[in-house]
Design a protein around this nucleic acid. Structure first.
Ligand SMILES: [Zn+2]
Ligand SMILES: [Zn+2]
Length: 758
DNA sequence: AGCACGCCGACT
DNA sequence: GTCGGCGTGCTC
């Protein structure tokens, strides 16, 4: 007899370990490591699914008479988890303190439900439920797609108003019935009639696959690009860091690297920070290769997710493009992972499992003997440090292609502006340059760092700030809907006319930073067409892409936005970039605020002058001597890096240490505090046990979170900043599974190198 | 997550 | 005395 070690599909501390089950002799040939099985669990012997992580021989003598239960059956008839994937799950478990089954589940599309049925031989069988509802999309029939909108509208009778509405809407692209219903009331009858006339086409949603008709030919490479590519092909290094200034042709290099990997039969994984913000990059990849590519993002239908999953699993797809969760694709022959804009913080998962994509990708590459390429114009401090000590191969592209010059940058001291009596958000320099571009018909991007620029609602009579009832934060006013919203729990409230505190009517409402700036821009430049791009205006599905298309088609003069406008878009007619207030992210209380600001400034500056004309950048600030701003002005990455890395070293911040954040939340403040203190005490005890008492200096005492209450739950945390990673990984694991910790009622999270600590 | 076991107060 | 409240702990 054999024993299967099974992780059961429950995610909590007490079940984050394998359980032993006997394998019936007749089932032995059916069960392998990596397979999903059903096992009886608990007093009720409830059938639960789990994953086999090991199979060992059963020795009756060793069992101590302990009664073992038997595996009930298999879910699939093949192992769903490869041994590389299982190793990755284990690695995440020990390095990120993520539950094993959270890691396993990250590999599965959410809705693979397991069903039971009795077979004719009366044996219970388990199978996957594939009954996932189809998403049907409606689009204009092919033969009418080249017509103008007016011509299309002539296809239906004049009195068919609803049909015309539908056609008008569908002219912008395929839509589902639900989307049509949002815009057009009761469209069913009209859709039916359009379908019978053959004007509309009904098709299952396939938008997650991109298989283009026309392929774009490979352009000639510059000598710089050729050098980099040959250095890369000849190197045996596992990880390479491609540091290329904005506009240096990094994407073309990625495409060539992918071509080589595909020729060798490897699967390519191309990761981007956010799918919706990178339509241009995705198009370039799919236009280049004459094969199916899977684009993995959160908005595709469950059915497509399952289909994609199975096709990647069967090696039918060799190109996978996606955001961070795509590292959990079921590839079996990984050849290359490209991580574009590797400095972006979206690569760190903020939810369970709380992994960091870059180390995970490197680990996967190790298991598969594949290569990883990290690319950025502004590499993260961590990555560049690793390259500088030789852990990564450094590939550098210091010049823009076609001898394009880097934009000219000017720093404007806003204090001088105030001295001169200019109290507006636009300096004279930026104002005159915007005016100049408007006259010349060139475009401008204006960047407003969002943080700190939320508009809260307060009473000018007594100073009372309206706060969320469930959270310890101020409500934000939303001009468009005339409502207040809490950004932490999404609670919305209508506005009040009088101050709840002093009953005066001097309550002040003003729109968000971008909203206000947009209104002012329209006042200063009445003729200018201003597009706004921020999280508020970009909530709808295709709005990002539409805004970008409008701007690319020169249907607007100014693109005003938050962090979103700094991403790698390529607009040839943009010759001016303005940073309205560089200080906003600089003063944020986080050890990475300098790094983040440098990245934002450099990236947004890189949007200028991508066509034939040289770009200009204006950075407005109250702190013109700041080294971050000045290094960004000179496009001096190395200078900034040297300064910043010495700061990290003296203060022992990453890459010279690792941060462990242990957070506690619950509805009773006192018990949350108590739980947090208990955890802290246990860390001390564990250190004493190991004769490492001095390391307590690395453990910050329990403290209330910056925002103590969110959604009526109080929050406390412990922070550990240490270079003794092995020790603290062991200690955290020991404490997590201790008897004392079992008494902790608060929800507890461990986040390794979190994006934000508060 | 469930479900049993057990320790305490209220109700026949 | 015993019924049931839920807090605590275990499940291969
Ligand atoms: Zn008041
Ligand atoms: Zn709230």
């Amino acid at each position: 007899m054999k024993i299967a070690k099974v992780y059961i599909n429950q995610t909590n501390f007490s079940m984050d370990r394998p359980f032993d089950y006997l394998i019936d002799r007749e089932m032995e040939s059916l069960i392998a490591v990596g397979q999903r099985v059903m096992v009886p669990f608990g007093y009720g012997n409830k059938p639960l699914d789990g994953v086999v992580v090991d199979i060992i021989d059963f020795n009756a003598g060793e069992s101590n008479g302990y009664k073992l239960k038997k595996v009930l059956g298999v879910v699939e008839n093949y192992p769903v988890m490869s041994c590389e994937q299982l190793k990755a799950c284990e690695w995440l478990q020990s390095n990120y303190h993520a539950f094993f089954m959270d890691n396993v589940n990250a590999y599965f599309p959410g809705t693979l439900n397991i069903k039971t049925k009795k077979d004719s031989d009366l044996k219970t069988r388990f199978y996957l439920d594939f009954k996932i509802k189809e998403t049907i999309q409606y689009s204009l029939a092919c033969e009418y797609r080249d017509l103008s909108l007016d011509q299309v509208l002539e296809l239906t009778p004049k009195n068919a108003i609803k049909q015309a509405e539908i056609l008008k809407y569908l002219y912008t692209g395929p839509k589902t019935r639900e989307e049509l219903k949002e815009v057009i009331i009761n469209p069913n009858q009209a859709i039916k009639s359009l379908l019978t006339k053959g004007i509309l086409l009904e098709a299952a949603n396939k938008e997650s696959y991109v298989h283009p008709k026309k392929l774009i030919k490979k352009p000639d490479l510059t000598p710089d690009q050729k050098n980099i590519l040959s250095e890369f092909s000849n190197s045996v290094d596992r990880v390479s860091l491609l540091h290329g200034v904005t506009g240096s042709g990094k994407t073309e290099i990625y495409l060539n690297m992918m071509e080589e990997a595909l020729e060798q039969g490897g699967t390519c994984l191309y990761l981007v920070p956010e799918i919706s913000l990178t339509p241009q990059t995705i198009n370039r990849i799919t236009e280049r290769f004459d094969q199916k590519a899977a684009v993995i993002h959160s908005r595709i239908s469950d059915k497509d997710k399952v289909r994609q999953y199975l096709e990647i699993d069967k090696k039918e797809i060799k190109i996978i493009i996606g955001a961070r969760s795509a590292v959990f694709s079921p590839f079996r022959d990984l050849g290359l992972i490209i991580i574009d804009e590797e400095h972006e913080n979206t690569y760190k998962s903020q939810n369970r499992p709380r992994y960091d994509t870059i180390p995970l990708a490197c680990k996967l590459a190790e298991f598969f003997n594949a290569k990883v390429v990290l690319g950025s114009a502004t590499p993260s401090m961590v990555s560049y440090y690793k390259a500088s000590i030789g852990a990564y191969r450094l590939l550098e592209l210091p010049n823009r292609i076609n001898c394009m010059e880097m934009p000219r940058t000017e720093i404007v001291d806003m204090r001088e502006e105030i001295k001169d009596g200019n109290r507006s958000f636009l300096s004279k320099a930026l104002y005159s340059r915007i005016k100049d571009r408007l006259d010349k018909g060139e475009q401008t991007i204006l960047f407003l760092n969002k943080r700190g620029y939320y508009s809260f609602v307060f009473c000018r009579s007594c100073g009372y700030v309206i706060k969320c009832k469930k959270c310890d934060v101020a409500m934000t006013y939303h001009g468009k809907t005339n409502k207040m919203i809490c950004h932490y729990c999404n609670h919305t409230r209508s506005v009040e006319d009088t101050c709840p505190e002093c009953k005066s009517n001097k309550i002040k409402y003003s729109g968000s930073g971008t909203e206000r700036v947009q209104a002012l821009l329209e006042k200063y430049f009445p003729a200018a067409r201003v597009l706004r791009m921020d999280t508020d205006t970009m909530k709808k599905k295709d709005s990002v892409q539409k805004t970008l298309e409008l701007f690319a088609d020169k249907k607007a003069d100014i693109l005003l936005g938050t962090q979103m406008v700094t991403k790698g878009f390529d607009f040839e007619n943009v010759t001016l970039v303005g940073v309205l207030l560089a200080d906003l992210t600089l003063n944020f209380p986080d050890y990475r605020s300098s790094e983040r600001t440098f990245q934002l400034l450099t990236q947004v500056a890189g949007r200028a002058g991508r066509g034939t004309k040289r770009g200009e950048v204006v950075i407005q600030t109250y702190d013109p001597g700041n080294y971050v701003i000045n290094h960004a002005k000179c496009h001096d990455y190395k200078g900034f890096y040297d300064k910043e890395i010495s700061f990290r070293k003296t203060h022992e911040y990453p890459p010279f240490s690792r941060l462990f954040y242990v957070g506690f939340a619950g509805d009773d403040m006192k018990s949350v505090k108590k739980d947090c203190e208990s955890y802290h005490r246990q860390i001390k005890v564990e250190l004493e046990k190991r004769n490492q008492n001095i390391l307590i200096k690395d453990v910050y005492p329990p403290s209330p979170s910056g925002i103590i209450r969110i959604n009526n739950r109080y929050r406390y945390y412990i922070l550990i900043k240490t270079s003794r990673i092995k020790e603290f990984n062991d200690i955290i694991r020991a404490v997590n599974f201790s008897d004392e910790t079992k008494k902790i009622k608060s929800t507890m999270i461990v986040d390794v190198n979190p994006n934000a600590v508060f």
